[in-house]
């Protein structure tokens, strides 16, 4: 479904992604782990289409379609969804109005009619119940004044409403207590299916007990330095990233010819 090939991206003249390769098939769940600043969010944002990152080399394909040529909203219409590490507060725009516009825009792209107001509310209620969200979140402005945990839950709520084919969750677990994490994981798992794929970015193995990945990748300094099965996450929990960081440093030194 998703193919990332030799992806290089920089921001403000500094290279952050330095040759990422990643292949995710429909039906799979992948996890990316890695130290702070290794470029995990950058990768997620580049896939979603944030234009402050300049892609200098490589490609990103969704079912063979070149994502890099598409606007962020077009990528969303193609089925890409990013749950932000830091969801943005949008005072003055109600959660419902926003979601309905988003849903209708995606439906329009798929040749479907606008969602009926009654059906929409029923859907909202169902998904909110699933996530144990209070009804007041419906009419409150998007993320404005939400706690960290509430914002993360709201991201998953948006995801469930929009039913993306490729969901990228950027540290959706950080700041969640164990109960909230279970709820969020249930939400993500409910979306799993043979036509969909999930990419989770996390620092903690804990989440992966609930959203069990098919593959785990270690990203260090803008590259994926190791890939493995779910046991790799357990191993990282034990040993940390030091070993990978040293190898990456050595590799970088060699690469730059020093």
């Amino acid at each position: 479904m998703l193919t990332v090939r030799n992806l290089h991206a920089s921001v403000a003249g500094r290279e952050i992604l330095r040759g990422i390769d990643l292949k995710i098939n429909a039906g799979e769940v992948h996890a990316i782990m890695g130290p702070n600043g290794s470029g995990k969010s950058t990768l997620a944002q580049v896939i979603a289409g944030r234009d402050i990152y300049e892609v200098t080399e490589g490609e990103v394909l969704l079912d063979g379609k070149n994502l890099l040529e598409l606007k962020p909203e077009e990528r969303a219409c193609e089925g890409v969804f990013l749950a932000f590490q830091y969801p943005v507060e949008i005072p003055g725009v109600s959660n419902m109005y926003f979601l309905r516009s988003a849903l209708n825009s995606i439906r329009k792209h798929r040749g479907l009619e606008e969602v009926d107001a009654v059906d929409f509310l029923a859907l909202v209620e169902k998904k909110m119940n699933l996530l144990g969200m209070d009804k007041t979140f419906r009419d409150r402005p998007v993320n404005a004044g939400f706690s960290g945990g509430e914002k993360k839950r709201n991201e998953i709520f948006h995801m469930l409403m929009l039913e993306p084919r490729l969901a990228i969750l950027d540290e959706t677990d950080s700041g969640l207590d164990i109960d909230a994490m279970k709820v969020v994981s249930d939400g993500v798992n409910s979306l799993r299916g043979k036509d969909r794929a999930v990419l989770v970015v996390t620092h903690y193995q804990r989440l992966l007990n609930y959203i069990v990945p098919d593959f785990v990748h270690v990203q260090v300094n803008g590259r994926i330095v190791k890939s493995g099965g779910k046991e790799l996450a357990l191993q990282l929990e034990e040993s940390g990233y030091a070993q990978f960081e040293e190898e990456a440093m050595a590799g970088a030194a060699k690469g730059s010819g020093r």
Binding site: A48, G49, R50, D51, K71, P72, E73, R75, A76, C77, V80, F81, L82, F84, P87, V88, I90, V93, F98, L99, S101, A102, L103, S105, I106, H109, H158, L162
Partner: peptide, 9 residues
């Protein structure tokens, strides 16, 4: 960007 990433033009 947040709004656009959810499909809004």
């Amino acid at each position: 960007f947040y709004l656009r990433s959810r499909g809004i033009s």
